[in-house]
């Protein structure tokens, strides 16, 4: 994906800043909305080059749709992860077999890797330690498979399916 033009980036930054303003003030009063728009326009002048790389091309309908599908799936995984933790903490025998394994990923963009790392951290029994190129270092509380391929299949693949569509 090639870099977007200046105006494109500027508009994207303004949209993001304005949405943040509306969420933070949490009101629909006219004066707040007008001040927010002015502030977003001013702040974006100085910051659009740092905050955006691909501009509006991020906002295709397909990506938004996959994001809407992904959010409940992610929340469900978080809840499952917590029952898993509750079981491990409360069970008298404490079934843990921790280890550190490597996981490969196919995602190319930095934001995609960040999302994958966060997803892995919040799912049952795994916590990302570091990302380098296409390898993630993951601490696993109950190691089922020590090889790189097996761990990748067990940990990374379920999320990559969605994240590949969202972040490319």
């Amino acid at each position: 994906m090639e870099k977007a033009g200046k105006l494109n980036k500027y508009i994207f930054t303004v949209v993001v800043l304005y949405v943040s303003w509306i969420l933070l003030t949490a009101t629909t009063r006219a004066d707040e909305l007008i001040v927010g728009l002015i502030v977003s326009l001013l702040v974006a002048i100085g910051s659009f080059d740092y905050l955006s790389e691909h501009g509006l091309s991020h906002l295709t309908p397909k990506r938004v749709l996959y994001l809407i599908i992904y959010a409940p799936y992610y929340l469900w995984q978080v809840i499952l992860a917590n029952f898993d933790v509750a079981y491990r903490v409360l069970a008298p025998s404490m079934p843990i077999k921790p280890g550190i394994v490597k996981v490969k990923t196919n995602l190319k963009t930095d934001s995609g890797k960040l999302a994958l790392a966060n997803s892995i951290t919040m799912t049952p029994g795994t916590l990302t330690m570091d990302v380098k190129d296409d390898t993630l270092l993951v601490h696993w509380i109950y190691v089922k498979d020590e090889t790189v391929e097996g761990a990748t299949k067990e940990i990374g693949t379920p999320f990559e399916k969605y994240l590949k569509e969202i972040f490319g």
Partner: peptide
């Protein structure tokens, strides 16, 4: 209940890494 479980895991689990697993997930949810 999950805030409590996260803190309880912090006391019960044997080493730092497993403690972080429990505390991060449970207290966040």
């Amino acid at each position: 209940i999950f805030l409590f479980l996260g803190a309880f895991g912090l006391i019960r689990l044997p080493d730092l890494y497993t403690r972080m697993q429990a505390s991060t997930k449970s207290t966040t949810l």
